[in-house]
Amino acid sequence: MGNGSLGGAVIAVAGAGGPAGRATLVRLAEAGATVVGADNDPARLAEAVDAARHAGGGATVTGETVDLLDLESTRAWADRIEKEYGRVDGLVHLVGGWRGGADFAGTDLADWDLLEKLLVRTVQHTSLAFHDGLRRSDRGRYVLVSAAGATKPTAGNAAYSAAKAAAEAWTLAMADGFRKAGGGAGPRAAAAILVVKALVHDAMRAERPNAKFAGFTDVKDLAEAVEGVWSKSAAEVNGNRLWLTEKP
């Protein structure tokens, strides 16, 4: 059992190799969780895992290359985690991607084909794969990171916003399942959505020192908000959008 707010918890992070994933691995490890990251880029994932191990002061942090576009591979990953650690208390979904254009009429539907896979299909697979394990946990949480554009789409972001909105609807349906399963006692597990305008990290600031990044959420603040989903009761967070930027 680790110390900290998440001592003893076992949390999986999908899309762990990107800047948000890296910050989240570090934060969860510092909070005492056993963290299992997945990414489709082995080199990037190994770097993120090493950084989190170093920061986590002895926390167990592992990484695995998983094809989240394949449901059976995703289910096998979830099963391996529960078999190895005896439980799974969370799935943080950070698989991202963006394509967009200048205006609505110029929308390229090839962007939708890509974003539907990255932003919707991976959510479907991780939620279905981890659902039963999260229900078996006494603090199961499914955390989707979404964008304000899902609520207020802009003309050039039709494909991106529609994919994010679909992922949100899917996650809220999962939350309704948790609510119904809990009955009068309230949900034991929770599915929640963290909403950002966009994310920013140190390398972006270094590349564009004069940019304001107004309304953006730093990946470290996102990671803190992810950890915070476990500090609230399932009833407080289940089926809710938790806004980390101004609500449109």
Score class of each variant (00 low, 15 high):
Gly156Val: 07
Ala150His: 12
Thr151Phe: 08
Gly133Asn: 05
Ala163Tyr: 00
Ser146Tyr: 02
Ala167Thr: 09
Ala167Gly: 13
Ser161Trp: 08
Pro153Val: 15
Ala155Trp: 06
Ala155Arg: 10
Pro153Arg: 11
Arg139Pro: 00
Pro153Gly: 14
Ala167Glu: 00
Arg139Gln: 11
Asp132Ile: 09
Asn157Thr: 15
Ala150Tyr: 08
Ser161His: 10
Ala159Asn: 13
Lys152Val: 10
Arg136Gln: 09
Asp132Arg: 06
Val143Leu: 10
Val143Asn: 00
Ala159Phe: 04
Ala162Pro: 04
Val143Gln: 01
Asp132Cys: 07
Ala163Asp: 03
Leu144Phe: 01
Ser161Met: 06
Ser137Gly: 14
Gly140Met: 02
Tyr142Ile: 04
Ala158His: 01
Asn157Gln: 15
Val145Cys: 00
Ala155Tyr: 01
Arg136Lys: 12
Ala148Ser: 15
Ala165Phe: 07
Ala159Glu: 09
Ser137Tyr: 14
Ser161Val: 01
Ala163Lys: 02
Val143Gly: 07
Ala159His: 05
Ala158Glu: 03
Arg139Lys: 13
Asn157Tyr: 10
Gly156Glu: 10
Glu168Asn: 11
Thr154Gln: 12
Arg139Thr: 10
Gly133Asp: 06
Glu168Cys: 08
Gly149Cys: 09
Arg135Asp: 11
Lys152Trp: 09
Val145Ala: 01
Ser146Pro: 05
Lys152Asp: 07
Glu168His: 08
Asp138Tyr: 02
Ala159Leu: 13
Ala148Leu: 13
Arg141Trp: 00
Ala167Pro: 11
Asp138Gly: 14
Tyr160Asp: 02
Gly133Lys: 00
Gly149Arg: 03
Gly140Pro: 01
Ser161Asn: 10
Ala166Tyr: 06
Ser137Leu: 12
Ala166Asp: 10
Arg135Phe: 13
Asn157Phe: 08
Ala162Cys: 15
Leu144Asp: 01
